[in-house]
Design a protein around this nucleic acid. Structure first.
Length: 670
RNA sequence: GCCCACGUAGCUCAGGCGGUAGAGCAUUUCCUUGGUAAGGAAAAGGUCCCCGGUUCGAAUCCGGGCGUGGGCUCCA
């Protein structure tokens, strides 16, 4: 069997394109790595669509995710073995689309064989919405080389070349690939193929180690397009050669291909980096530094609303909000273990003359632990839920930074719940419930849960077996008791405990972790946390790390893409644009503005000497929820003529409008 | 960090096989006061990412940085 390693599939998944209406369930395609899946991962809701989502960050990273981290689902899911999709354990799902794409990958390789005889082949699996094939060309290949390869593919497709399946004796297969200088394939046979029979597929001059199945002829491949080239390490290992990966997409018909390409265009339009610039929400400037975004006034307004919403809800649910510093003595992180296990993501400490070493915090759990320890806690105090929306600093590798989605300084909606083992389940459940509530209000309609448990490799984990079992059971049970389906991924837990991640997609259907719930027995031990139990003895609490809304930065990038900038009224930086028709109506317009502001509605009075059409157009481009036109008639009647984003107009008394929009805002209607 | 591509006015981009650069939008000013997605005119605006090198001369060529995008790795 294959290993399911850490490498994963995420990549593929990422690249994938969308899956239009349906969500994901792609695990079917992904097959089998998910060992013991408990429920099907179906995505849970999806509601509307037109708005694709994006994602948010991982919450409390905490921990030490040394290198395994809680991670993103991505990896989790896919696999490493994907390579094997080319061979090995890739169990075909029988999905015709997958077969088509996998065959197109072979077609790509066949074209490359003719154009670049020296090329060596890596693997070429089908992935969500397409396929890729990794090659070692022995020289740089760029996107400008794709058209030539693609047209050769078309020629081969028209040539009606059969996909011939052969089963060769192992020795014979080795010789075949040896003769062709295909060292990567030889390696795959050595490592992945058991037994004496080796399954190969032949397409013209191209011979591939592959289990299939494939379409019968290249003429069955009618709608495909090469999309981009990228570097990819052989077998996902950074220490091995980097191959050139060519990504492409393939569909049964040209029409579907077209739709997919259109989807990509649409996704580009709602890209949060583009909208962030167009709508003046945030900026990233070299002078400040990579991965350090600046929230501009309108973006900051949205963030303020989000934080207000989050904090108010948490306070209502019994969380205690605190404020703790962004820096702390390095010793604090030595004690938590981060200095050792998380060092590569931490900024270098600031050293002072007197020997003091201060560290920008990569996580804030140690701070909350200190808060916990300001008093001798009683079992009556538990569960104690300490929350904070505070900045965390992580020195992410430069190549991973992306807009607001992945940054080096981010404000996590973090909380640490200190509770007794008996309370664990309930706390996990309420943390999930909170995340669900946030999702519902914020419009995160499409997401799924992923339960990451520990795998068998013992030394990767801290703690004892019993605690792990207990924690995993608590997480699984919490989800099940709430009727929430999830995907179970073994081996992806944080080193200190299992976790549940909430996964979402961005506009391009790349997967991200939005929020998480993680159980931790390690920090309580490292900090010798305790509480006085009912019987007077000292006991150790359990910690739950949870980031219900994720990081504000990632949440923001998600919401921008989710709404394509057309935020719900309660979030929109400008809720109403008041447009007087002529200067003569400015005075009444000012009164209208004043009235709305008195009710805390964010308004912008557009007093430019522009025409009405122009002002309305500008407001529409800003995706402002309401445009209130004020002209002679309105001055006369005391009404406002309001147009919403759908273009529906209605004339109503100012007071009616005020109460209408106030209610909409108060209810945080979407 | 690695691979590929890219880096010209605030934005979107042209142009430049070496001789100090253009458009549209945005901005400013003037005219226009006009009922539901772009009224007209003028002006202003650029270290052509940075640093070196080659050259009489570099935004254009070469090298090295930095940054951005897409992937890989990683994952807050």
């Amino acid at each position: 069997m294959s290993r399911r390693g850490p490498c994963g599939r995420g990549k593929e998944q990422r690249l994938a394109g969308k899956r239009y209406a349906c969500a994901f369930d792609q695990d079917a395609q992904s097959g089998g790595w998910i060992t013991e899946r408990v429920h099907d991962p179906s995505p849970i809701h999806f509601i509307h669509t037109d708005e694709p989502p994006s994602m948010t960050p991982d919450p409390s990273p905490f921990m030490g995710r040394a290198r395994e981290g809680p991670g993103c689902p991505s990896k989790t899911v896919h696999i490493l073995d994907d390579p094997m999709s080319d061979y090995g354990d890739h169990e075909s799902t029988g999905d015709p689309l997958e077969k088509l794409r996998h065959s197109t990958a072979h077609l790509l390789a066949a074209a490359v064989t003719e154009l670049y005889p020296e090329a060596k082949y890596g693997i070429g699996p089908a992935v969500q919405d397409g396929f890729y094939y990794d090659f070692d060309f022995g020289k740089p290949i760029s996107e400008s080389d794709l058209p030539a390869i693609e047209s050769r593919m078309r020629r081969l497709a028209q040539a009606d070349i059969p996909f011939e399946h052969e089963v060769l004796p192992r020795q014979r297969a080795m010789e075949e690939f040896q003769k062709r200088g295909q060292e990567f394939k030889l390696e795959l046979i050595r490592d992945k193929v058991e037994g004496d029979e080796v399954s190969v597929y032949r397409t013209g001059q191209f011979l591939d180690l592959c289990r299939g199945p494939h379409v019968s002829s290249t003429k069955d491949l009618k709608a495909f397009k090469l999309l981009r080239v990228a570097g990819a390490y052989w077998r996902g290992d950074e220490k091995r050669p980097q191959l050139t990966r060519i990504y492409g997409t393939a569909w049964p018909t040209p029409k579907e291909l077209d739709e997919y390409l259109k989807f990509l265009e649409e996704a580009a339009k709602r890209d949060h980096k583009k909208l962030g610039r167009d709508l003046k929400l945030f900026t990233v400037d070299d002078r400040v530094g990579p991965g350090l975004p600046l929230w501009l006034p309108d973006g900051a307004t949205i963030r303020r609303e989000l934080e207000r919403f989050i904090v108010d809800e948490e306070l209502a649910r019994g969380y205690l909000h605190v404020r703790t510093p962004d820096v702390a003595r390095l010793d604090l992180y030595r004690q938590s273990g981060h200095a050792q296990l998380y060092a590569e993501y931490m900024y270098p400490p600031m050293k002072f003359e007197d020997g003091e070493e201060l560290e920008l915090r990569p996580v804030n759990c140690p701070h909350h632990i200190v808060v916990y320890q300001t008093e001798l806690r009683s079992y009556r105090d538990l569960p104690l839920r300490i929350a904070e929306i505070g900045n965390n600093w992580r020195y992410e590798r430069s190549g991973t930074l992306a807009g607001m989605n992945r940054v080096r300084s981010f404000a996590l909606n973090d909380a640490h719940i200190f509770c007794t083992p008996e309370q664990l389940m309930d706390e996990v459940r309420s943390a999930i419930d909170l995340a669900l509530y946030f999702s519902k209000v914020l419009g995160i309609d499409e997401f799924w849960y992923q339960l990451s448990t520990r795998d068998d490799v013992k030394d990767k984990w801290l703690g004892d077996e019993a605690q792990w079992q207990e924690a995993q059971a608590a997480l699984a049970e919490a989800l099940e008791s709430m009727g929430q389906p999830y995907k179970l991924v073994a081996g992806e837990a944080a080193f200190y405990g299992p976790k549940i991640d909430f996964q979402v997609y961005d506009a391009h259907r790349r997967e991200f972790t939005n929020s998480t719930v993680q159980v931790d027995f390690q920090l309580p031990q490292r900090f010798d946390l305790e509480y006085v139990a009912e019987d007077g003895t000292r006991k150790r609490p359990v910690m739950v790390h949870r980031g219900a809304a994720g990081a504000m930065e990632r949440l923001f990038s998600y919401l921008i893409e989710r709404y394509a900038g057309a935020f719900p009224t309660w979030l929109h930086p400008t809720q109403v644009v008041i447009t007087p028709i002529a200067d003569a109506h400015l005075e009444f317009a000012s009164e209208v503005a004043k009235r709305l502001r008195a009710s805390r509605v964010r308004v912008h009075l557009d007093g430019r000497s522009e025409r009405l059409d122009r002002k309305i157009r500008d407001a529409k481009l800003k995706k402002v929820p309401y445009v209130a036109v004020v002209g002679g008639k309105e001055v006369e009647s005391g009404h406002v003529n309001v147009q919403n984003r759908a273009g529906e107009k209605s004339d109503m008394p100012l007071e009616s409008f005020v109460s209408m929009i106030s209610a909409e805002i108060a209810e945080r209607r979407r």
